[in-house]
Design a protein around this nucleic acid. Sequence first.
RNA 1: GCCGAAGUGGCGGAAUGGCAGACGCGACGGUCUCAAAAACCGUUGGGGGCAACUCCAUGUGGGUUCGACUCCCACCUUCGGCACCA
Length: 895
Amino acid sequence: MTDTIATDTTTKRAIERFDPSIEPKWRAFWEQKGIFSAGRRPGAPNRYILEMFPYPSGDLHVGHLKNYVIGDALTRYYVIRGYDVLHPFGWDAFGLPAENAAIKFKRHPREWTYSNIAESKKSLEIAGIMYDWSREVTTCDPNYYKWNQWLFQLLYKKGLAYRASSLVNWDPVDQTVLANEQVDAEGRSWRSGAQVEKRELEQWFFKITAYAERLLQDLDKLTDWPERVKIMQRNWIGKSEGAEVTFESEQGDQIVVFTTRPDTLWGATFMVLAPEHPLVAKLTTPDKQAEVEAYVTKSKLESEIERTSTTKEKTGVFIGAYAINPVNDERIPIWIADYVLMGYGTGAIMAVPAHDERDFAFARQFNLPIRVVVQPEGQNISAEAMSEAWPDEGVMVNSGPLDGVPAGKGEGQSVKAAIAWLEEHGKGKGTINYRLRDWLISRQRYWGTPIPMIHREDGSIVPVPDDQLPVVLPEISDYLPKGRSPLASATDWVNVTDPETGEPARRDTDTMDTFVDSSWYYLRFTDANNAQEIFSKEAAATWMPVDQYIGGIEHAILHLLYSRFITKVLYDEGLVPDDEPFRALFTQGMVQRRVRTPVMIENDMVTFPEELIRKLELPREPVDETTARAQLKLHGYVLERAGEGWEAISGPVTMSKSAGNGVPVGPFVRQYGSDVARIVVLFAAPPENSMEWTDEGVAGAQRFLNRIVALFGPDQAEIAARKGRMYKYTPTEADKTLHRRLHETIKKVTQDTEEFHFNTAIAALMSLLNDAISYRNQAGEVTPMFTELAQAYARLLSPFAPHLAEELHAWFGGEGSVYDAGWPEWDEAALMQSEIEVVLQVNGKVRGKINVPAQADEAQLREWALSNERVQSFIEGKPVRKVIVVPGKLVNVVA
RNA sequence: GCCGAAGUGGCGGAAUGGCAGACGCGACGGUCUCAAAAACCGUUGGGGGCAACUCCAUGUGGGUUCGACUCCCACCUUCGGCACCA
């Protein structure tokens, strides 16, 4: 920090720069003093701040850092404010990627995972992200997954874990079953991207549907969650109210349908079953057999994307059978069609083409009858003339007991009336349906928590007794996926004796979905080293719920919904104090960076590099420059000169290993400092937005820290010498102004930090720095006011540039850590100005400004405004109709 | 198709009913230097004017208001989520 590199010609003071080599000593200092250890301030109000724990992917780049920098800034803010803060870290270490990497690099998943953890941890330490490492958890450690197994058994005992055979999502590449949440809209696996197939398998499920209503209702309690996350969860839970109505086939088989419009039952003209519906085989008449089987087979083979495409023409087959409409005993044909999904409702619908868009399209496609039962007000629609369904309000017609009732959901309206009628006549009942499915947790893979259950020879299942947990993942040599769990090949491990009878039995060979591991890890942090329990009630009561959870929007549904579910289960068990895990949620935006690819230009002809040819499907043969630019532009690329050669520069894309645009943490921090990286990330954009990482942004952050050092560095001894002394002096105007600016800044930084407006908090600190520099240049010496400012500045900087803040604190004679120095408080009185500027408007346009005493009242302001020359000239002698006076702000004269 | 968010200088963004463009980046001019970099000083929304100044301007069109980036209505565009959910 002492390397003088130039001389400022105006003040002849040595210029110093921010030196990143000061950082390691402060990290060691914090570590040694335990500044960021939870429980350091017993009795103080506490905070639990948590970033979503990562999958250990090895070397971190600065894009990974953003999440941690936000959490670290908040942690430091609350620590300097005097809170006892829990800020722990861990590793979501189980899961497919380790196994896939193990297969690819021929290393054991454990070895690969732990070496990644060591590397990632080093990056975080170098970056000075401070965690209470004594509470580190690693999900692939038996001391952790033991409690995963315990949790599984708790759910089992409560009837919330069950085994069932069902049609499940099968990923043919990763060779495993996936949860619904892990399959995207196009029917592709979240990991492998492969088209998922449907298979009938026996699997373990968690009964999350038992909590559907609470998961939905309690979203309203989460006032500090982003609205869009809550909306996504609401949509995912997908509650709809309606009725179940029982139809009967002519042979007497009961066919239950779910409908949200039981009022339109009288308009049902046919019925549709999902192709997979269990009654299809039984009901199909012999003459239709071949046709129906062909259709069922075809729809099984069709990919999810083809099947669910909304633009597709409706397809279906009449199965030859008829059902009786329970409300009017009408005989209606039964069809199968793939637009009816087995996974929703009952897999069977009554079709009311007049009032449902899809049924309408189907009826038109196959010439099925349409009957109007809701007549829109003031219209008289007829089935023949309809060009689209009428799903809206009107009055019920052709509906027996419902005729004349207004169509709608409210009291005294058709839906309620229909449900009442159905219940009274025993033909159906009001019901609520959710789109949420139970959580399928079995995985036929090696690298996960073994499911702690034992299968007896008679087919029954018993849990592994608690005192035999954990069921340790066995060592095997071949973890290649093969359609059944690789664990099945560990025969010594699989073959056990029944804990109750001593008879030979077999272990369950599947492992748990990694989302089970991450659904409760935040609870383990409260008591991470407890060998007796999953966590103690007291520890959970002390810290839970998490006060601030920070992570990516990509977990809006999966992880957050599962965590809420598990917390509710544990709450019902009396183990946690609150039935929601995360009081506040913040979803941060991505860090992006442009990708630069060198391009060959010879004789004005451009040859694209191989990687761009493949990625953007560009021509292999050389093209002229204009064509090249146009082709690149289509993909958001520009062609630019770079030194001697040329580069194709992409638009900003998320930093990632695959895009090759990550800036590694280690080298960056060593060259520029972690404080620079933090300022870049926090200042560039609001933290919820994505931000572009640029060299200019880095230079700007560096400049800011350099200016701080250049201002305070040369004066450090003098500032330190004045520390704690009280001065009696008559403040100059400049003193008063700087004092006011300091307190304005304290207020703004405090408020902005609490609201996650780190970019404006840092802007305020830059602004104050600019003022302080001007002040110091004019004063020409270290004044009492400058000393006051310097002391406060170090503390205000501490959440954002912690190493420099600690250095400043030490320079200025501070004892111990800046984080024990307390956060500066602003003084409202200091914000007052004796004289303020008031804006004068004529007809809403600014026409002048006057300086007036701050306490000037309305009458005075009015007087001054009206007598103002410029105001007069704009009134142009017209009569003044109205004068609006906003004391302290403006006067608007309406003429 | 449904739901949601957003649209402000060359760029990131600031201002949630009261001076639009804080802070930063970039650009331009200057100081220092043999030169460059760094650093420092200044200018920087657009039009008009020698100037004091003035007009226009926050996606588009309307409205409410003394006053609208901010509130209301309609539309356009972009992004995100869901999507044959009965």
